[in-house]
Computed example of a mutant assay.
Amino acid sequence: MAKRGKIDKPVLAESEVRPERLKKYKYLFLIVCEDQKTEPSYFEYFKVQIPEESIYLRSVGVGRDPKGVVLSAIDERNKLAFESKREVDKVWVVFDKDDADENQTKVKNFEDAFTIAADEKFEIAYSNEVFELWLLLHFTKVNKNVALPRKAVYKMLQEQIRKTKKYESYVYVHAHPQKKTIDIVFEIGNVDLAISRAELLLENQKGKNPIEANPSTTVHFLVQQLREWINYYSYTK
């Protein structure tokens, strides 16, 4: 757990409202996501499992590319540290490969995201190609030897959800906020199976750089760590 120390004071907008009694929490857990809706909504679901006054979980969506997500995480960490008058215990950044291999500028930005995150001691949860691969794994395994483009992942996710009768008319629209999708994932999906399926994909991509490792995701590491902290603070003798 991070030690208390001197925190650089960030510039805060006058309209920003600080969380009440933030100091009461024992552990500060910050997740900064590429997507502004779907990814933060997924991690927000874990709040109901957190024992009172133990973990303060903040999940933020910034709508930037991978390097931008990491740079935003620096600002978000400093902001939370200033609000709480202490250092933030854990920072995760969540982003996708998407089209990062489209040109050399995007390749460099993707690689810079990992370098800066390491320098800042941030943990990384990436998906190749998209976060929706992690959601899909809640329902089914995928062929570890066949690269999955984004559109294929979206289609497969829609098909899997439609297998449940009450959602047989469900339509996945990537451009729209997907809180409804997250609700469905937690209702009928299986996070434990998603973790085991993600482990198999990652093992198959061993030795490859993240930008080349399609299909793969490391979101399960974030979920496992978050669940471990929740279990830690939930423990009673």
Rank of each mutant, 00 (worst) to 15 (best):
Y45E: 04
S41L: 02
I31Y: 11
I31D: 04
E14I: 06
V48H: 12
L22G: 09
R18S: 04
Q36N: 15
K37P: 02
R18M: 08
Y45I: 03
P19T: 05
T38F: 05
P51Y: 01
Y42V: 04
D35E: 02
I50N: 03
C33K: 05
E39K: 15
Y25L: 07
K24E: 10
F46D: 00
P51E: 00
E39Y: 12
Q36G: 15
F43Y: 13
Q36P: 14
A13K: 10
L22D: 05
A13H: 11
F46G: 00
C33G: 01
F43Q: 00
K37E: 10
E16T: 09
V17T: 12
K26A: 04
E14S: 13
P19K: 13
V32C: 01
F43D: 00
E53S: 12
T38I: 06
E34M: 05
L28R: 11
R18K: 07
T38K: 06
V48A: 13
E14M: 10
F43R: 06
E44H: 09
R18E: 05
D35M: 08
Y25N: 04
K37W: 08
Y25T: 01
I50P: 01
K23A: 14
E52I: 08
R18G: 05
E53F: 13
I50D: 00
L28C: 08
E34P: 14
S15K: 05
P19W: 09
V17W: 07
L22N: 10
T38R: 08
E20D: 07
F46H: 00
V32D: 00
E52S: 11
P51H: 00
V32R: 02
R21Y: 15
Y25P: 02
K26G: 07
E44A: 14
Y42A: 10
P19N: 09
S15N: 08
C33H: 01
K23M: 09
V32L: 03
K47Q: 05
R18Q: 03
E39L: 14
E14T: 09
F46K: 00
E52N: 11
V48R: 15
Q36A: 15
A13E: 03
Q36W: 15
P40D: 01
Y25F: 11
L28N: 08
P19C: 10
K23W: 15
S15D: 02
K26C: 06
E39R: 15
K23I: 12
Y45W: 02
Q49M: 13
S15R: 03
E53R: 03
Q36F: 15
K47E: 02
A13M: 10
V17Q: 14
Y42K: 13
K24I: 15
P19V: 07
E44F: 09
P40Q: 08
D35R: 11
